[in-house]
Structure formats: C-alpha cells, structure tokens
C-alpha cells in the first residue's frame, strides 16, 4: 500500500506563465498569438532543433522547452489559466477547499436527477442535463473573465474570491460532464 500524502507547498514560487511566453498578465488572451509564440519558441528550444549543441547547453535548452510547454498548456485551457492567474494574485484553491453549502446542495440535487435519468435510460433527459451544464460552464467562464477585468481595473480584491468560487463550481461541472460521458 502506497503511503504518500500530497503536500502542497507555498505556491507563490510558481513561475508566471504569462512572463514565460512574454504575454501581458491578463485573463483575456489571443489564442492565435499564444499558438504562434509557442510554435516559434518551440522551434528555438526543442531538443531536436539543438542536436549540435554541447551536452550542458542541451540540458539548459531542454529545461527551457519544458518550461515553455508547461506555460503553454496552462494558458491554453481557460480554467487552468484562471487558476494560475488567481495564484499570481495570491489566491489559491486547495484540494480540501470547503465549498459553500449552497453549491453542495445544488450539485447533489443535480447528480441525483442525473442518476435517476440514467437509471431509467432516459437519454433525452440526460442530453438536456448535459447541455444545461455545458451552458452553465460557459456562463461561469464568461463571468470569470468579467471579474478579472473588474479586478484589473479597480483592484477589487473581492472579485478574486468570487472567481475562486466560480472556478470551484466550474470544476464540479466538468466532473459532472465526465460522468455523463462515461
């Protein structure tokens, strides 16, 4: 039996993904620009493009490529980008985060209904649930984007906590959708 317990360090040390990619630190990003910067930088730092360099140079280049990769994958996915940006502002989501009783009750209700529809092989209803959740998640992301703008303009710390709650909600939504897929 494995006996490792995840331990979360101070996440302040995480390197800013926006600066790795020379992008402005804000939630709204131009995905095409991200892609183009990533590809250009990959061509410079991928180990296969640097086969003639000395071993020590190649190690440094490899590390740079890995950093680039990580930053790219964080920024590409909106929910990861939001979480990373929150962290940059000092707000973290822990694994054992307590969630609002209100959200918990909502989620439990929705799961129960889904379970019922699945048990009755009611595909139509399952599809309705699925589409509702996809729409919910889309709304949540939009709200998150607006709140980031509000924070960036007014330095309104309260919006960061609201973003955090929305992200937790979003994650529940993702897990809910995964269950439907299975």
């Amino acid at each position: 039996m494995a006996n490792a317990v995840p331990f979360h360090k101070n996440q302040n040390t995480v390197e800013c993904c926006f600066s790795v990619l020379n992008l402005k630190k804000q939630f709204e990003i131009d995905l095409e620009e991200l892609e183009s910067i990533y590809l250009t930088r990959s061509k410079q730092t991928h180990p296969d493009q640097n086969l003639n360099k000395s071993p020590s140079e190649r190690v440094a280049i490899l590390q740079e490529f890995m950093k680039l990769n990580e930053a790219y994958s964080v920024l590409k996915a909106p929910e990861r980008r939001a979480e990373h940006l929150l962290g940059q502002y000092g707000v973290f989501i822990q694994d054992n985060e307590t969630i609002s009783p209100h959200l918990l009750v909502d989620m439990l209700d929705m799961r129960e209904q889904l379970q019922e529809a699945q048990d009755n092989d009611d595909h139509e209803r399952v599809v309705v649930f699925k589409n509702t959740m996809i729409e919910n998640n889309r709304q949540n992301l939009k709200e998150i984007a607006d709140l980031f703008v509000s924070f960036e303009e007014n330095d309104d710390l309260n919006s960061l906590n609201m973003i955090k709650d929305l992200l937790i909600k979003f994650r529940y939504g993702v897990r809910y959708l995964e269950e439907i897929e299975e």
Binding site: A4, V5, F7, M66
Partner: peptide, 22 residues
C-alpha cells in the same frame, strides 16, 4: 502533454515516525 516534459510534486508522511516511503 507534449514531450519531453516533467513535473514535480511534494508528498509527506502519513504516520508518526514513518521512516520509509512506498
């Protein structure tokens, strides 16, 4: 995930005086 790639995570012990990690 695009390769080559890496990740680091930190773990801690579960029991007092646990001297090994499986």
């Amino acid at each position: 995930s695009t390769i080559p790639t890496g990740a680091t995570n930190t773990y801690t012990t579960y029991a007092d005086n646990q001297t090994g990690f499986d």
